[in-house]
Simulated scan of single mutants.
Amino acid sequence: MVLVLVPFFIYLMGVSKGQLQVGFYSNICPDAESTVTSVVREAAASNPNIAPVLLRLHFHDCFVQGCDGSILIENGPDSERHAFGHQGVGGFDVIEKAKAQLEALCPGVVSCADIVALAARDAVVLTHGPSYEVQTGRRDGVVSNVSMADNMPDIGDSIQQLKSKFFGKGLSEKDLVVLSAAHTIGTTACFFMTQRLYNFPGGGSDPAINPEFLPELKANCPQNGDVNVRLPIDRGSGQTFDNQILQNIRGGFAVLQSDARLYDDEATRSVVDWYFGLLSPLFGSSFEQDFVSSIVKMGSIGVKTGSQGTIRHVCGAFS
Rank of each mutant, 00 (worst) to 15 (best):
L102P: 00
V53Y: 04
F192E: 03
L231M: 14
A181E: 00
V271K: 02
S280Q: 11
V271F: 07
S319G: 03
Q65S: 08
G277Y: 09
V292G: 11
C62A: 15
G202Q: 12
A104E: 08
G204V: 00
G202M: 13
R312K: 07
C29A: 14
P7Y: 13
G299A: 03
A317R: 15
A182F: 10
R196G: 01
S307P: 08
E133D: 14
K304P: 07
C190Q: 05
G316E: 09
D31W: 06
A113R: 03
I185N: 00
E266T: 12
I245S: 12
D122T: 12
V255D: 07
E266D: 09
Y25L: 09
N243W: 13
S131Q: 12
L282R: 06
T240E: 07
G108D: 01
L20Q: 08
P281N: 06
G23W: 03
E266I: 14
P48R: 10
H58D: 13
D31I: 10
A98C: 05
L54G: 03
Q161T: 13
G309C: 11
V303R: 00
A104Y: 02
N145D: 14
L12S: 13
V227Y: 05
H313N: 02
N49L: 00
S111C: 04
G225S: 08
D290C: 08
L278E: 11
G66C: 06
A32R: 02
L176Q: 02
P222L: 14
I50Y: 03
L256E: 12
D157P: 09
P153E: 10
Q247V: 10
S172N: 10
